[in-house]
């Protein structure tokens, strides 16, 4: 099962690697991880998404709690929480496609937040799953990069880096029957990229 674990941790150098190292050393999954200082600058909030059986999640929370730097830990799966994802996509545009992209962005309540002669950056935020798919369906639209910014009260996760990765690793993916990103909702046949 998927769990979101929110950790209050001493804001010291190495704190992040202690957490990340724990996951790799003990073979736990880590799907995403965000860190930012809190209103008390001596503390950081780390929000991570992981998955595993109840036993594994129990061990993960215990082992994290055991880290000397961890002040407090909450498994959000035990409580009511709000989850939002923020996505920023840079899209390469042409004369012909700019209008179409603007229309699409409007339909899906995306905001264009930056413009250059050949690109748009579209920002979109929503509860999961974020509606990035329509953008990718545009024949001319290819996401170049995705940035995300963490925010504490609003949980957001970063797991849609599929588009850019697909582009970068397009060659490698051709050989496979489906997208190698476990969280990509697309089967290979529907992959928007030319293959």
């Amino acid at each position: 099962m998927r769990h979101i674990i929110s950790i209050l941790i001493e804001n010291e150098s190495g704190a992040l690697s202690r957490v990340a190292g724990l996951f790799s050393a003990r073979g736990y999954n880590i799907e995403s991880l965000t860190v930012a200082p809190t209103e008390d600058p001596s503390l950081s909030r780390m929000t991570l998404v992981t998955s595993g059986s109840d036993d594994i999640i129990e061990q993960i929370t215990k082992q994290l709690n055991k880290l000397i730097d961890v002040v407090k830990l909450i498994d959000l799966a035990d409580s009511v929480y709000i989850e939002r994802e923020l996505m920023m996509v840079k899209i390469r545009t042409s004369e012909q496609s700019r209008e179409e992209i603007r229309g699409m962005a409007d339909i899906f309540r995306g905001k264009i937040i930056d413009v250059t002669p050949s690109t748009y950056v579209v920002e979109s935020s929503s509860a999961r799953p974020v509606n990035w798919m329509p953008l990718s369906r545009l024949s001319t639209a290819i996401a170049l990069s995705k940035l995300f910014a963490p925010d504490r009260p609003v949980f957001q996760e970063a797991k849609k880096d599929c588009i850019c990765k697909l582009k970068v690793k397009g060659e490698r993916l051709k050989a496979k029957k489906q997208c190698s990103f476990a969280l990509c909702p697309l089967p290979f046949a529907l992959c928007p990229l030319p293959n």
Partner: peptide, 11 residues
Amino acid sequence: VDPASISKTVK
């Protein structure tokens, strides 16, 4: 004394 030792391998 270590909660992480409990139910780690044996329930």
